[in-house]
Amino acid sequence: MIIEFINMGGYGFYIWTSFLIVTVFCYFLYYKTKKTLKKYELELATELEKLPVEQRNRIARSSKVISNILASQNKLS
């Protein structure tokens, strides 16, 4: 039964290759996108860390994006 399922009536090669290609390329784009996002989040957080605490807090209060990034980085560390 498993062999029948893999064989897919003789079209197994075409069917499994199609699904595999879609999976591999979708995962590749997901991995690359996530990696880039994490890289920029980390870079922004590092630049903020370099600032004096007072200035950093002021920026975090005035910008939701910055406070969001700082919060997510704090959760990770």
Partner: peptide
Amino acid sequence: KYKTEIIKIKKKNIKRL
């Protein structure tokens, strides 16, 4: 990707904040 683009803009403008 959209979030990455927003972060890129914020990173560029960090000194103006």
